[in-house]
Each structure stands twice: as C-alpha cells, then as structure tokens.
C-alpha cells in the first residue's frame, strides 16, 4: 500500500511538473502564475501522500500552512499587474 501511495505522489508531482512547463512557455504572466498555483495544489497532495506512507510528525501542519497561503502569490500578482492604472501608484512620491 505504501508503494502505491508513493507512486501516486510521484505521478502527481510529475504531472504538475509538466504543468510547470507553462512557466517556461508562458506566454503571459498569468499562465506562469497558474502553473505556480497548480504546483501548490499538487504539492499539497504529494505532501499528504508521502506523509501517509512515511510518517513524520507535523506534516499536516505544513500542509495546513501551505493551504492557508495557497492564494497569496496570485493575490500579489493580481494586485501588482496593471498597477500603472494609476490607483496604486498614487503615493509613489511622483
């Protein structure tokens, strides 16, 4: 059973790594962001699977932290693109 869990973790990592190919290709920054998001979800899945096969204390808390912060990079991305619309730059001292 443990072998199966590890294989599943490896397979999921492999597929999301293939998705990371989007990071290389883009074409847009949004696509790159999506690849990071995909890796986040897949990474949590792989983490839980590995932890179930090779018990380490506290893995659930690591996964909890990752899940809690999963949207942060996307939030920062959306917040910063088109910041030159003028609204966020109001106080840039210009």
């Amino acid at each position: 059973m443990n072998e199966f869990l590890l294989c599943a973790a490896g397979f999921i990592l492999l597929t999301v790594a293939a998705g990371l190919f989007r990071v290389l290709r883009g074409p847009g920054d949004a696509d790159r962001m999506m690849a990071a998001q995909l890796l986040g979800t897949g990474g949590i899945a792989a983490l839980l699977l590995i932890a179930s096969a090779t018990p380490v204390a506290g893995v659930a808390d690591v996964a909890l932290g990752l899940a809690l912060l999963a949207a942060f990079a996307s939030v920062a991305f959306v917040n910063s693109v088109g910041a030159d619309d003028g609204q966020a730059r109001e106080a840039d001292g210009k």
């Binding site: 890796l39 986040g40 990474g43 983490l47 590995i50 090779t54 893995v59 990752l66």
Partner: peptide, 10 residues
C-alpha cells in the same frame, strides 16, 4: 520554495 518544503519533509 514549495518543492523545497517537500524536500525538508523527506
């Protein structure tokens, strides 16, 4: 960074 936290677990 995300992959590294997997490595640290291993």
């Amino acid at each position: 960074g995300l992959l590294l936290s997997l490595v640290w677990i291993r």
